[in-house]
Structure formats: C-alpha cells, structure tokens
Amino acid sequence: MRGAWLVAARELRADARHPDGFATAVTFVAALVLIESIVVGPQVARETTVAPALYWIALLFAAIVVTTRSFDRELADDAIDAVLALPGGRDALYAGKLIALAATIAAVGLVGGVLQIALLDLTLALPGHALVAVALGVIALPAVVIIDVALTLRLRGRAALVPVLAVPALLPQLVAATNALGLALSGDATGSLAWSGLLLAIALVYAVLGLTIAGTAIE
C-alpha cells in the first residue's frame, strides 16, 4: 500500500506542477455544459434526467483525457520503468493512479457541477446526497479507464480505442451515477442513496478487478 501512496503523491505533485490534464478536462466539461443548453434547449437541459446524464458523460470523457495525459507523462522519458521499480510494482502503479486520478476527476466534477448549477439555474434539493453520488461515482471511472489506457499504451490507435473499450464497460456506472445524481436533484433521498450504494458496489468491483488484472495489463 505504501507504494500506491507514493505513486498517488507523485501523480498529484506532477498534476500540481503541470496541471494541463486537469485544465483540459475542466475546459472540456465547461464547453459541454455551455453547449448542452443550446443543443437540447434550456428546458430539456435542466431536466433532472438530462442534466445528470450529460454531466456523467462529460466526466467519463474527462476521465479519459486525464488518464491518457497521466500515462503520456510517464512515457515521455520512460519514467514508467522507474515507477514500476517502486515497491508494489504494477499493482502499486494501478492503485496509486486510481487514488490520484479519482481525486483529480472529483475536482473536475466539482467545477463542472458548480458550472452546471450556475449556468442551467438548477436547484439542488439534496446537496449532501449529490456530493456522495459524485464522490462514489468518480471512483469507477479511472478504475476502468486506467486498464484501457494501459492496454493500449503504445498503440497508434489509442485515442479511438480507449473510448471504445471504456464506454461499454462503464455503462452500469453511468446508469447508476445518473440516477443517484438525478434523484438528489429532485429531492428523493432514499432513491439517491440506494443508487449511491450501487455506485459503491460498482466501484469496489471495478477496483478489485483492475487490481487483479493490472499486473498483466500494464506492460
């Protein structure tokens, strides 16, 4: 576990020094929030089923952006070999990146959420429940995307391949997260918590699965 924390701390330090991945993801989410009301119309965009769905789709692609950027940084000067030499090796690399990227995506999600609330004039009936949904919902995103980015690390078609592999695998997470957040928006505390419970289960399953196959998936 020490290796994982070392990787996570290193990852977060690198993000703080060069926050290009975070900045790109936030810009991407902001752009999507800005255009959604134009594309689907302001009334539809504000609906408690539509706004959370667009929010989570934006976060999914933001997760792909920050994870790809994170691995690109490792590849730039073969730093990945040094990281793999740390205690824990590939498992520590996976767990560390999972911790750091979940935190980064949560930060992107908070900025995107505030933007969406402000720009779409949303009323958040249960802010605490919404925060729980976002906190649990962001864990599964890097859990899957890290494996997909690792599998396609040195392939020329990576940019197209990662979404193709990640989106189908994350479908249960998108459904649960959209429902948890939508019900928090509309004021259904029990329903929101039930979906958040499912989000926790999904996050655990993906994280354990990711840890199990990380040794094989990361070259």
Binding site: G157, L165, A169
Partner: peptide
C-alpha cells in the same frame, strides 16, 4: 465490446 476486442488486436 467485442468489436473493441478485435480492434485492439488489429492495432
């Protein structure tokens, strides 16, 4: 998902 599997192989 399995089309993705085949794409992964082909690349």
């Amino acid at each position: 998902m399995y089309v993705g599997y085949l794409l992964l192989r082909s690349l």
